[in-house]
Amino acid sequence: MSLEILGISVLWTFLFGYVIIGSIDYGAGFFNAYSIITGREHILSKVIQRYLSPVWEITNVFFVFFFVGIVGFFPQTAYYIGTIFLVPGSIGLILLAIRGSYYAFETYGSKGHKGYAFLYGLTGLLIPAALSTVLAISEGGFVFIEDGNPVLDYWALFTSPLSWSIVILSIVAVLYISAVFLTWYANQTGDDEATKLMRRYALIWALPLIVTAGGIVYELRFHNPEHYERLVDLWWVFGLSFLLWALTVWFIWKRKNYGTAVWLLFGQFALAFYAYGISHYPYLLYPHLTIHEGFTNRAMAISLVVVFILGLALLLPSLYLVLKLFLFNKNYVRGTKEQKE
C-alpha cells in the first residue's frame, strides 16, 4: 500500500468515525428538542442527556482530527479547500461553536432553559448540512480557476440538485443513525416508553434514507459521469450495504436484537461510505486535485503515520475506559446509584 493510500484511508476512517458519532450526537439533540415541542420530554430527555453528557468533546475531536490530518497528509487541500470553503466552513464553525458552548452552559450551568434546547436541536441539523456541502464541492463543477486562484461558484452550488441531495441525505442519515442507536440505548436503560418512541422514529426515517441515497447516485450520473461509472463498478458493495439496511429495519420492526441492529447499521454505513470513498479515488477535488499530486513529502508522511500509531495506542485504552464507565456500565446507563468502586 502506498503512503498516500494509507494516509487517505486513515483520514477516511476518522471521517467515518465522525459521521457515526456525530450523527448520534446531532440527532439526539434534535430528538430532544422535538420531544420538548411535542410535550414528550419526560420520555426522552433523561435517556438522551445521560448519553450526551460525557461524549460531546470527544465527538468534536474526530472532526478536528480530520481537518488537521488532511492538511498534514495533503497540504494542497489547504490551498484549494481553504480558499473555496471559507463561507460554508465558517458557518459550520459558528454553528459548532454555538452548539458546543451552549451545551456546556446548560449542562454545567443552569438547567432546563428551553431556548438552549431548541438551538441545540436546530444546530444539530444545520451543521451536517453546512459541512456536507464540501462533499458536493468535491464532485467538481462548482470550482473555477480565476487568475490562478480557485473560486467557488455559489449560485451553481446553490441551484444544483446534487448538492441539495447530499445536504438532505446528511440530515436524514443523522436522524436515522441516531434513532436506531437510541432505540438500543433506551432499551438498555430499560425505559420502554423511550424505546417505543425511538423505534418509531427509526422506522420513519429508514425509507427516506434509502430514497435520498439513491437520489444522489441518480444525480451523479449527470453531474459527474466519471465518478458515476466508478460507483456502478462497485454495485455489489452498495448491494451488500442495502442488505444490511434491510436487516436492521427488520430487527427493529420485530422489536428484537436491537444491539445487532446497531452493528448492522454501522456495517451498512461503513460499506457505503468506503465504497463511495474508493470510487472517488484518486480525486480529492474533481478535476483539480488528486491524492497523488497533493501528497506531502515522504518524511512528513512517515512521521505522521508513526505518530498516528502511537496516538492510537494511547487513545484506544482511554476510549475503552469511557465506554466501560458510561455507555456499557449498566448502573450508569440505568441511572441507579452505583456501588462505589
Binding site: V71, M300, L304
Partner: peptide
Amino acid sequence: MELAGQIIAL
C-alpha cells in the same frame, strides 16, 4: 498552510 503543512503538520 499549503507550505507549512509540508513541514509543521506533525
